[in-house]
């Protein structure tokens, strides 16, 4: 292993890491919105939309992410929808994560004791009011562990969009290896960066979890 190679390639790798973070961050935000509304639609069993939501979740969970990426990037242009690699990647990642998030949102909303909704309704709150003021703050706490897990998985999944030429961490590593012929060194450095990144977010989200559960402590 040659240390100079590591030092020389580090700036490029770190820059590509920013792309990885960007992909994960923007995708998780979109996924949160998709996941939330999908969960609400499925809980309220909204006519028609419910069927669509169920199919969406089933499709996303029942097919490999890589296939979803290919369908969006290589498949959609055939029907006139051409997206650049980054948009395709973000779309695939957020649709995929959104499906998983909707499951954890749904489970966490249903996990809040029914008495909470009854107490809210019996005060004269509207359903959206009760959801926003009483149910969601509690279900969010319940959901945080699975949400953090989804985010960690999402960070790892960003590596898959390297196959459609998005220059994120893994793609950059491959590019550097093509020049240096040092696959072991460079891939290990990439792995180390992923590991540090994920450890950092894991710690951060653990803190959030502890914070949000303060009221449960006797």
């Amino acid at each position: 292993m040659d240390v100079t190679i590591i030092i020389d390639s580090l700036p490029s790798l770190l820059k590509a890491t920013l792309m990885t973070i960007f992909l994960a961050a923007i995708s998780i935000l979109i996924a949160l919105v998709i996941g939330f509304f999908t969960a609400i639609i499925r809980i309220l069993k909204v006519k028609v939309l419910n069927e669509i939501a169920n199919t969406y979740v089933s499709l996303m969970r029942g097919t490999p992410l890589l296939v979803q990426i290919f369908v969006i990037y290589y498949g959609l242009p055939q029907i006139g929808i051409s997206l650049d690699p980054i948009s395709s990647g973000v779309l695939a990642l957020s649709l995929n994560a959104g499906a998983y998030l909707s499951e954890s949102f749904r489970a966490s909303i249903l996990a809040v004791d029914n008495g909470q909704m009854e107490a809210s309704m019996s005060m004269g709150m509207t359903y959206p009011q009760a959801l926003k003021r009483i149910i969601l703050p509690q279900s969010l706490r319940i959901a945080i562990p699975t949400l953090s897990n989804s985010f960690i998985v999402l960070i790892k999944d960003t590596s898959l969009v390297s196959v459609i030429t998005v220059t994120e961490l893994l793609q950059m590593s491959s590019l550097i290896i093509a020049k240096t012929f040092e696959p072991l060194t460079i891939y290990l450095v990439a792995a180390a960066i992923y590991w540090i990144l994920i450890s950092f977010f894991t710690k951060l989200l653990d803190k959030l979890e502890v914070q949000s559960s303060k009221y449960l402590v006797r």
């Binding site: 909470q116 706490r141 449960l216």
Partner: peptide, 13 residues
């Protein structure tokens, strides 16, 4: 109408 439940149903958060 105030409704008081057997299980209180206070908002725990």
């Amino acid at each position: 109408t105030g409704f008081v439940f057997q299980s209180f149903n206070l908002f725990p958060h």
